[in-house]
Computed example of a mutant assay.
Amino acid sequence: MGNWKTLTMEANERIKQAELFIGAKRLVEPFSYAPTVVSYQPEEIKEIIRITEKQNIVILMSGDTGFYSGTKKLLLHLKEWEVKIYPGISSISYLAAQVGISWEDAKILSLHGREESLEEALFQYDKVFLLTAGKIDLLCQRLTLHGFGDYDIYIGEQLSYPEERITIAKVKEMQQFESNPLACCFLIANGEKKRRASFGIEDELFIRGSVPITKSEIRAVTMSKLSLRKTDIVYDIGAGTGSVSVEMAIAASQGRVYAVECQEEAQQLIEQNKEKFQLENLELVKGMAPDAIEFLPKPDVAFLGGTRGNMEKILTVLQQKNPNIHLVINAITLETVFQALEILKKLEFKNLELVQVFPARAKQVGTYHMMTALNPVFLITADGAVD
Rank of each mutant, 00 (worst) to 15 (best):
Q278P: 09
N330T: 11
I325V: 12
V301T: 02
V301P: 02
K276G: 01
Q263P: 04
F303N: 02
I314D: 01
L279I: 02
I332G: 01
D291Y: 06
K321Y: 10
L296Y: 07
P299M: 00
K286Y: 04
F277L: 00
F303L: 11
E271A: 09
F338D: 15
A302E: 07
N330P: 10
E275I: 00
V301L: 06
Q268C: 10
Q278E: 12
I329N: 04
K274N: 08
K313L: 14
L296S: 08
L334G: 11
G306V: 10
K274V: 00
T316R: 13
E294M: 15
I329C: 09
Q339F: 03
R308C: 14
L279A: 04
D300M: 09
L296Q: 08
T333A: 14
K313R: 12
K286H: 12
V285T: 11
A302N: 05
K321I: 08
F277I: 00
D300Y: 10
F277Y: 01
I329V: 13
L269H: 13
E265L: 02
N322S: 04
I270L: 00
T336Y: 15
F277M: 01
D291V: 13
K298N: 10
Q267G: 02
L315E: 07
E294Y: 15
G305D: 03
G305C: 08
T307C: 01
M311T: 13
T307I: 01
N273F: 07
E283I: 07
L296E: 11
E280H: 08
L315T: 11
I314H: 03
G305W: 02
G287S: 04
